[in-house]
Design a protein around this nucleic acid. Structure first.
Lengths: 359, 359
DNA sequence: GAGAAATTAGTTATCGATATCAAATATCGC
DNA sequence: GCGATATTTGATATCGATAACTAATTTCTC
């Protein structure tokens, strides 16, 4: 019990352990780790060897404590979203790496009521990440402008780009999907719109329309239906489209949930998918791969976007603290067409029946 | 610019600001916040008023620095899982509250290869949370037992309960679902098994069998099909079941993804759901509400379970550091039957046609 | 090659919170 | 009501890392 020779409890090695082993001061070791100031090669190598030997990993808490930890708030406008996992993975991973403190606050009331935003502001955050639709909310932006808090729009950005943002090129994504459908031979293509308040929805529709026009295909008013990004609105849009004569041969929904609604109604009408109807979505949520047939959609690098957002807002906060003027940084990431089983050539009627085969 | 009366830059309030405003020492304020030691009511109220007035939020970095931050590792065995969002929300929320450092490491190779586990161990974590199937992996447990690292099994626990765990009562959940189907009037109920390596899958099957037996209903061998928790395996199990004569009137899959597969095949066979076939799942993933018809399933409080897991392993680590013997804490949380549209009475053939109505 | 300028390394103080120990106050037994 | 014990509060040191400053060394200029 009270053995005097008891080995001291194992603990994670500190920068001081590294410095002692390397025979330098802890400050020098710290500089090697952070790379903030050059260190002579001979010492640098000794320190690096010690780091490897001890398996040293910096204590982010201590680092953050000294360096004046930046606090970043994130408003969760849709805590049940299926892309939340990927988003949080990227955001928290980066925050751990940078040593910034992340405060995640779910919007309990309607997102546009700004309750979560107010709670975060009162908690003393230095920067805020605004997912849709808050990045487009003039009320939210006005509220933030009055404060000293920096903001960054995630996946949305108004055309004036008045705040920093991390987005994908929604226009281009929608255009590539539309072109995919046209290349398959579709001519009668319907589109389910996203929410009126979401600027990405507008850009997706613009990408659709532009590509149709470029290919000299008509966009009839009857082939456009309103939607609000919910399963139900997709379901109802499909009911409208599929009662038309002639029917559209393809339906492109502005997100996956609505595409799921379209597919559900098509099943209900006993249509053979994808031969009698092609369906396309946008977002590549986990649902896309689980639907039957699995959904052709546009993949966004959510995790990378989230880590970029955290890194960017942290950088902006740091600059603002140093009194530097804030640049309107805007990262636009690439998105990618993912072709699965829900789209096919409209004339594929007699193609090998895939109704009971799974890709 | 250099106005001498310039207000000092706004910054987050500290415990010291709180203490000054309340007219007490910072230590007293700290005790009020943490609740570690009782504080006289009069002072406590003054401190709480100051906290509210200043909107004080503890700086987790500083707290962690002083308290010897506990590092908890989490192996992500399925980074694409749709319950990941809820899981991370609970886990990170609690880690922020407790000031423990969370290292989340996705398993890049097969989970049973233990690559992520090894990386976490080398990073000097003090405790590790093991989601399925690692909580059942003897190799993983053996590796950990050799080290000084504490472990906690999430959602799995072997019968000997040789390590601490946070689980739900899978047996009870499956039993309540089975009873629900029986109460609706089903007699021919088929079951899709989960992966052989997942102990929860075994317990779910046991719950199903026990309840069938209790109600004097037969469990034919042909009404049990193997599965591995994937959409595809559910799809194939359904193909097997629905070619039988007489067909089962209900299929209970050990998770939602497999239930989605069952529903997809049933649509492909033009069965009217739920009238001609009831389908039930387990987990209540976001997919469940997006399927059509929406899925009757068992809801698990993932977010609460995750925060409980973090709190518990942090506590275990703290005890181990203090040299106390580790108790085998096992939290078993309640799960809940969620009845949606995919289950109905088997004789409901002529009920009002809900095929084109959405609930 | 002397002195100035630039570079690199070390010392000390500090971030915000809490562990620890000491002091002050309240409570109790008889 | 006194000393003893229990409870509550405060002062100080400290967690691990780095900012800011100082000291030492190197490099450069003419």
């Amino acid at each position: 019990m009270s053995t005097p020779t008891r080995k001291r409890p194992a603990r994670a090695p500190t920068i001081h352990d590294v410095a002692t082993l390397a025979g330098v001061s802890s400050m020098t070791a710290s500089r090697v780790v952070s790379g903030s100031t050059p260190v002579r090669q001979a010492l640098r190598e000794k320190v690096n060897a010690a780091i490897k030997e001890l398996n040293y990993r910096p204590n982010v808490a201590a680092r953050a404590a000294r360096s004046g930890s930046v606090r970043i708030g994130i408003v969760l406008t849709n805590p049940k979203s299926s892309i939340l996992g990927e988003f949080l993975l990227g955001a928290y991973g980066e925050s751990t790496r940078l040593g910034v403190q992340l405060l995640v606050e779910p919007a309990i009331e309607d997102p546009v009521k700004l309750d979560a935003l107010r709670r975060l502001m009162r908690a003393g955050v230095d920067g805020i990440i605004l997912p849709p639709p808050l990045g487009d909310s003039t009320a939210a932006l006005a509220l933030l402008r009055k404060s000293r808090i920096s903001a960054l729009a995630f996946a949305t950005a108004d055309s004036q780009a008045s705040i920093p943002a991390v987005t994908i090129d929604d226009f281009k994504g929608a255009a590539s999907m539309t072109q995919h459908l046209i290349d398959l031979g579709h001519k009668r293509i319907a589109f389910v719109q996203g929410g009126k308040l979401h600027s990405p929805a507008q850009r997706r529709e613009a990408g659709f329309r532009a590509t149709m026009e470029k290919n000299s295909l008509p966009v009839r008013a009857a082939w456009i239906a309103p939607g609000d990004f919910t399963f139900k609105s997709g379901f109802e849009a499909a009911r409208k489209f599929l009662s038309l004569a002639p029917r559209p041969t393809a339906i492109f929904a502005a997100n996956d949930d609505m595409a799921a609604g379209v597919i559900a109604l098509a099943h209900g009408m006993n249509l053979k998918l994808p031969d009698e109807l092609s369906v396309a979505g946008f977002d590549d949520t986990p649902i896309a791969a689980t639907l039957w047939p699995s959904l052709t959609t546009i993949h966004q690098p959510i995790s990378t976007m989230a880590s970029t957002a955290v890194r960017t807002i942290a950088e902006i906060v740091r600059r603002a603290r140093a009194g530097e003027a804030g640049a309107f940084i805007h990262h636009r990431m690439e998105c990618m067409l993912v072709v699965r089983a829900s789209t096919a050539s409209p004339s594929a009627q007699s193609e090998k029946t895939r109704t009971t085969t799974i890709s």
